[in-house]
Simulated assay, not measured.
Amino acid sequence: MKLFKRKENFSPVQTASGIRNVHPFSDLSGYSPFTSCEFKLYDSLKEAIPVIDAAIKKTVRLVGGFKAVCEDENAQIKLAEFLRSVNVNGTGVGIDIFVSCFLEQLLTYGTAVGEVVLSENCEVSALYNASLDDIVLKRGNNPLDVRIYRKEIEGNVPIDMDELISICTLSPKPGNVYGTSLLKGLPFISGILLTIFNTVGTNWERVGNVRFAVSYKPTDSNDRAFAKERTEQIAKAWSETMRDSRASDFVSVGDVSIKVIGADNQILDSEIPVRQLLEQIVSKLSIPPFLLGLQWSSTERMASQQADILTSELEYYRRLLEPTIRKICGVYLRTIGFDCNFTIEWDNINLQDETELAQARLNNANAEAVEIQNIKLRNEVKINGQQGT
């Protein structure tokens, strides 16, 4: 009896680059104008400003889950098991991980690429989220033909089985194969915000680590004659006093004054400009501020209009993801011999208070009951009028 199964052989992932650290400046070998630099810029934004990273991750979670429903019952069972247990990127299990990574890549860079990996038996073995640093998208012979190339040391190599690869773009510009990042337009605002944060940190570092100005003024000619020696004595005594870990006194004679450097200056109030900049960032990311820990109002609840707007945003992202999900499910069903129709059913998005929703349903039911009663009364009046005539 075998305790361990033989490790399944995967076909090489087509969208994984073969370029490795050839020399310290290997990025120059696969240089692609604008795109690679832009991708690194968006990564830096997420790392430098936690609000941006938190907003993208919360959007990914709020999109919710889904299930695929097939007409054939046997296909339904196998497809559900596949979606639950498929290998993702070699470290994850389940299509939810693939979709989350796919959507985060789409929101961050404006373009997401995923691949269905087949085994030697032409069965779906894994799903792979391709790095945009490893591939290049170009126009083919006509404007509707998009070709995928893998970056290699010898140059860009075209990918053969591109039907196993799914590309999704967010708000692409006309004539451009790459999409537009959700973070586009934020580098300028974020740069100002980081400048403020850096300045505040520097000021507080100076305030916390106090510096003193010790001044000695000679009073007469005798003091002026020995001013240099007395200044060196005062500096030595002051240094010993400040280095002592215990509380100690500094005693001196003559006109000696001690002041804190910068004590007369005030730190600028950064609350208003920081809030204005964060409002610009939040408006771009379309996430309610309180979900990001920003308490700008006395209430922490969303209005029904805000919930509807956020729901429409999430449904838009679902529509972008669904073709990729359908392609993965379709490839899997065909590899196991099924050609049945299926639908993608998403989980319900509920962002409003259950009490308010229940009250709204009750009000609608009462209004419908009143309308039915009015219809019955009108019908009775018509019947009585006809009988009277």
Rank of each mutant, 00 (worst) to 15 (best):
K46M: 15
V370W: 02
A358N: 12
A48R: 07
I49C: 13
N156E: 07
E229M: 13
V210H: 03
V381S: 04
A227Y: 05
Q14K: 07
V69S: 00
I272S: 09
W204Y: 10
I344G: 04
N121R: 11
A303Q: 03
L106R: 10
N87D: 15
V124I: 08
R275G: 09
L292R: 03
E371I: 11
F250I: 10
I159K: 05
Q352M: 03
D264K: 07
N209C: 07
T324E: 08
N142E: 14
R378P: 07
T219Q: 12
N363E: 14
E81D: 11
F226T: 15
G94W: 03
S215N: 05
L351C: 06
L137E: 07
F66H: 13
E315I: 02
V117L: 01
H23V: 11
Y109Q: 06
E322K: 04
Q387L: 14
I234P: 07
K259Y: 06
I135E: 12
W204I: 11
S171D: 08
E313G: 00
Y109I: 09
S286N: 06
L62P: 02
L144P: 15
Y178T: 13
F66L: 12
E38T: 11
G262D: 03
F342Y: 09
L132N: 13
N141W: 11
M242K: 07
Q76A: 07
S297T: 13
K151W: 13
C122S: 14
F66S: 11
I267M: 04
L377D: 00
I287D: 11
V210F: 01
A365W: 06
V251I: 13
I95M: 03
L291E: 13
Q233F: 11
R224Q: 14
P12A: 08
I77R: 04
M1I: 04
L377T: 05
R275H: 03
C340V: 09
R334D: 08
P24E: 12
T343N: 10
E356N: 08
P187L: 04
E104G: 02
G191R: 02
K67S: 14
Y109A: 07
R61Q: 04
L278G: 03
I167Y: 11
D223E: 12
L351D: 02
F34D: 14
L144A: 15
F226I: 15
V253E: 06
V207K: 02
K46H: 14
S85G: 11
Q306N: 03
L351Y: 05
S119V: 06
Y332A: 00
A225E: 15
Q295P: 14
L292M: 08
T35E: 12
Q306K: 00
V381H: 00
L314H: 09
L127C: 05
S166M: 00
V274H: 00
I167C: 05
